[in-house]
Design a protein around this nucleic acid. Structure first.
Length: 936
RNA sequence: GCGGCAUUGGCGGAAUUGGUAGACGCGCCAGACUUAGGAUCUGGUUCUCACGAGUGUAGGUUCGAGUCCUAUAUGCCGCACCA
């Protein structure tokens, strides 16, 4: 019987469905295991072959764990809120919900064909009210919490109020509004005027990770800095814990390093500098307290509040002009133009150690958001200060022995201190330490740890996102009662941002909170006494994806995001697979969100993802045809790739992208090419052997012996390069099992690699051969050779899956198949176990093989074969005998020989004597079971 | 500038603990069956006519290095006026 993959795959997918085999229960005697994929954003283009790579890997691991007797949670869902759907809505006038639902339906049908072991009953979509009510709910919890720096955890804001009532004398006399304003400075979800990344083209603000080099990550539009009143999440409060938590999780080093960079811990000191003629000092942050003797000027960020205080009347005009200029520069301009700019404020500071008077400048190379927004400048040992000093002709004092600062600064933290009073003669690290102690003791400053991680800006001026459960009373925000969740998006007439610059939700007619009747209303008058306006911004994309992994574990729970029992059973994600592009976005926010819920005692694990693996990107592999454009060109002649360097064609051909789906192993399908586009209808060819179309009687028939070879290049997978491959097409041609095996076979999971269809035939051939092996099955004791082959495979596959080294499993299957076929193996026992080993990788054919062995049950419920090492043992051991490291001959010796006996036997050997030529060996190394090395 | 990762045949890539480098697949070559081959099957395939050489380059440790150490080059990724 031939390997009919279409019939096999359809049949078994139906059977699994009928029996509901992938249903996962929260109540089980089995040990839990939670495997998770980063859920996709359902774009209009559908899945291409790159998407399922990680899903296949996690599916293999899940199926393996299941065969090992674990209760495996392996869910799938959709990140459904976001900009593209909304942009599409603006263009076409369709509701984003409609297009999103259509896209999700398409994704699901594509995913189902690949044969994943998802429990679809656990599917979540971030735009479902049942799901986003818990996003809104978490936001309310954050609003009512603050971060207690002593306890290092989030606490109810009520505790803070208690504290204020007890300790703060002003509290009692404050108005309600003043109290709310004060509390706002502590809330974990808070409203503040902050400098934001404003993207005019998208009409919204963006988080730092959504901006790269001054352009929006989505769309690539320019981003400018603006001060706006925005919702923020106090992620920075968790910086220390986010950093330290990395040591306790099993992630790749590069990903941890990326997060460490992003969090950006630096240990230094805050120091106070007096201003000449003023009482109040100002504070700077430095990591080089040792260089304080070399401070020759100070610099403030343009946005620093110190600027107004220190600017003298004479300098006022110049400073204002400078500040104005800074305000109007976009982030992109600032990055592009790194010329030194700045202006003198007119004031002088006093160096606390030398008492020298030093000028205070304003310059935009100092950032307002980091440290205190003010620095002490040490031009001799900081390259930025150096450039500034050179430009403004300020003194440069070297502080390290032997450092030549005539051409550039000496930034390294090494050498002996000079010109540095109490620090003279010390090595830099010791000097830093001593100065820290000195300033602490004298009260000049104190040791301080700074983080680069900023709070996340949480408002988006867009329609297609979660509404904030917030209404405004007397200009201050209040949360809706939890029982009113979910707060649904109002119906609006258009998705365009409003003309007044308000978010699109502004189109909703008087969308409001009626406090007396406790409900959300529209088309009502807002009286600001009992009916209050609702927040018009929506939440950003990362809101819905921050805690989705918790919801999968208990997605039908109406009482809580996740029930206590479910959470205590599943605890945390054991294996998370996804792309590195989320390293500084989703993976930071999720950890933050999780830690917050942990602080509240709602979940039992502090870190969400125990083990995380990044799958590489699948790049496109484009194909080209070469149009002849030399003398007498008609534009209709195409030259085979192998000929284009010949003198008659060199530099006379123009490469043209050709659809990779009409190219097979780099050979062009001539007929398909002519039908592909009207302009190629009459295409003529010079084939690989130099013959042209006239010599070719078979043209247009599948018997055509003439080949047109295409060129190729690795490029991004995109429609415009005609190199997008749809998994549906691969499945139609080869089947889901071939697709799954081939995606794994392409290379290591973590590496990026191009989708190259050359070679997929090899994998498909293997499945065909394997299928033939199940033609005749007999009940007989397997031979020792058969068992050895099988157990070698068990050992290898078990190791591979545990280490996610899936690419090396496919060769192992192939070798085992060849070996067993060579042994004419038809033993039921061996073939049955082979099927189980294949089940994670190629579940459909494995299921069919399992049933051909006469089983009634499903292979997905079978047990992972147990390894019996004794079958692997050989009767003898082949010892390669080396002289001075070079292999000369091989001896087969009994397995039972000890190291000493092997050595003796080898030395007594005739062959050995020949090589030794009567000399005594200097040394003999015997590695048991492996090698004998004799040093002459 | 700082940090991380990589570099092995014509190609994708194996080599798991320092122990016979190049598994497996593609491609290519030869043969078989064929009117035909872009089907199937069998055999060969790191380079070199050979002696030998060989895992980006140069050193080192070791009886033994693709694997460990030092330096260096190239490529990819992350962060970046973060004091």
């Amino acid at each position: 019987m031939e390997y009919n993959f279409q019939e096999i795959e359809q049949h078994w997918q139906n059977e699994w469905n009928k029996a509901n085999v992938y249903k996962v229960s929260n109540k089980s005697e089995k040990k839990p295991f939670y495997t998770l994929d980063m859920f996709p954003y359902p774009s209009g283009a559908g899945l291409h072959v790159g998407h399922p790579l990680g899903y296949i890997a996690s599916d293999i691991y899940s199926r393996y764990k299941r065969l090992q007797g674990f209760n495996v949670l392996h869910p799938m869902g959709f990140d459904a809120y976001g900009l593209p759907a909304e942009q599409y809505a603006i263009q076409t006038g369709q509701h984003p919900e409609k297009t999103t639902n259509e896209n999700i339906a398409r994704y699901i049908s594509q995913l189902k064909k690949i044969g994943f072991s998802y429990d679809w009953d656990r599917m979540i979509r971030t735009c479902d009210p049942d799901f986003y009510r818990w996003t809104q709910w978490a936001f309310i919890q954050m609003f009512h919490s603050y971060y207690d720096t002593n306890l290092q955890k989030a606490q109810p804001i009520a505790r803070l109020i208690e504290r204020f009532e007890k300790n703060d004398l002003n509290w009692a006399s404050m108005s309600e509004k003043e109290k709310q304003e004060k509390l706002m400075q502590y809330r974990i979800a808070y409203l503040a005027d902050t400098k934001v990344n404003w993207c005019p083209k998208l009409g919204t603000v963006l988080a730092n990770d959504e901006v790269s080099e001054g352009l929006s990550v989505r769309g690539g539009y320019p981003v400018e800095q603006r001060v706006m009143r925005q919702w923020c999440l106090r992620v920075s409060a968790y910086a220390g814990r986010l950093l330290e938590g990395l040591d306790r999780i099993n992630w790749t080093e590069s990903l941890k390093e990326t997060q460490r960079n992003w969090i950006g811990r630096s240990e230094g000191a805050e120091m106070k500098f007096r201003i000449k003629g003023q009482e109040e000092p100002f504070t700077i942050f430095t990591t080089r307290a040792d260089t304080v003797y070399g401070v020759t000027f100070m610099v403030l960020a343009p946005e620093s509040e110190y600027v107004a205080r220190v600017t003298t009347d004479e300098q006022k005009e110049e400073v204002e002009a400078y500040l104005d200029r800074c305000r109007h520069r976009t982030e992109r301009e600032r990055i592009a133009d790194r010329r030194v700019t700045g202006v003198f404020t007119g004031s002088y500071a006093i160096n606390p150690l030398t008492n020298a008077e030093i000028p205070i400048y304003v310059s935009d190379y100092v950032l307002a958001g980091y440290g205190t927004g003010a620095i002490m400048a040490v031009p001799a040992h900081d390259s930025r200060d150096y450039a500034f000093a050179k430009h403004f002709n300020l003194p440069i004092i070297p502080l390290i022995e032997g450092a030549d600062v005539s051409e550039q600064s000496f930034d390294a933290k090494e050498g002996k201190m000079i010109n540095s009073g109490i620090l003279n003669g010390l090595e830099v690290p010791d000097a830093i330490q001593k100065m820290k102690e000195y300033i602490t003791n004298t009260g000049i400053g104190h040791v301080k740890v700074n983080y680069r991680l900023r709070d996340a800006i949480f408002s988006r001026q867009r329609y297609w996102g979660e509404p904030f459960p917030i209404y405004y009373k007397d200009g201050m925000p209040y949360t809706l009662p939890e029982e009113c969740l979910p707060l649904r998006l109002p119906e609006i007439s258009t998705f365009l941002p409003t003309e007044t610059g308000e978010p699109p939700l502004g189109h909703a007619e008087n969308w409001a909170w009626d406090e007396q009747n406790k409900k959300v209303v529209s088309n009502t008058l807002i009286d600001h006494k009992t009916v209050f306006p609702i927040e018009l911004c929506t939440m950003p994309g990362f809101a819905g994806s921050s805690a989705y992994y918790l919801r999968y574990t208990d997605n039908h729970n109406n009482e809580a995001l996740v029930g206590k029992e479910a959470n205590e059973y599943w605890r945390q994600v054991n294996l998370y697979i996804g792309g590195t592009e989320h390293a500084t976005g989703h993976l930071i926010y999720s950890r933050f969100w999780n830690k917050f819920l942990y602080d509240l005692g709602l979940i039992c694990e502090d870190e969400p993802f125990q083990r995380l693996v990044n799958q590489g990107m699948i790049q496109g592999r484009s194909n080209f045809v070469y149009r002849y454009i030399g003398e007498g060109a008609t534009g209709n002649l195409f030259i085979s790739y192998n000929l284009i360097d010949l003198p008659e064609y060199k530099d006379k051909v123009q490469p043209i992208h050709v659809n990779v789906n009409i190219v097979h192993n780099d050979v062009l399908d001539i007929t398909a090419f002519r039908n592909w586009m009207p302009e190629f209808k009459n295409a003529q060819f010079v084939f690989a052997d130099g013959t042209s179309i006239e010599d070719n009687p078979y043209l247009g028939s599948p018997l055509n012996p003439k080949q047109y070879i295409c060129g190729w290049a690795v490029e991004k997978m995109s429609k415009s390069m005609f190199n997008v491959v749809n998994p549906d097409d691969v499945i139609a041609q080869y089947g889901a099992d071939t697709l799954r095996l081939y995606e794994m076979f392409l290379g290591p999971l973590e590496m990026s690699k191009p989708w190259d269809t050359n070679g997929i035939d090899g994998v498909h051939r293997f499945l065909k051969k394997l299928w033939n092996m199940y033609e005749k099955i007999e009940d007989r004791e397997p031979t020792r050779e058969e068992l050895r082959s099988l157990h070698k495979l068990i050992k290898k596959i078990t190791w591979d899956v545990e280490n996610l080294s899936f690419n090396t499993s496919i060769p192992a299957f192939m070798i085992a198949q060849t070996e067993l076929a060579g042994l004419k193996c038809n033993s039921r026992q061996v073939l049955e176990q082979f099927a189980v080993l294949m089940a994670p990788y190629a579940p459909h054919i494995a299921e069919a093989m399992w049933h051909r062995c006469g089983n009634e049950s499903f292979v997905v419920d079978a047990a992972w074969p147990e390894l019996n090492e004794s079958y692997l043992e050989e009767d003898g051991v082949n010892y390669p005998v080396q002289f001075n490291g070079k292999v000369r001959f091989t001896l087969t010796l009994p397995k039972t020989m000890t190291k000493e006996e092997v050595e003796k036997t080898v030395l007594a050997n005739d062959e050995t004597a020949r090589y030794m030529n009567g000399a005594a060996p200097k040394r003999v190394i015997v590695v048991p079971g492996k090698i004998v090395n004799i040093v002459i």
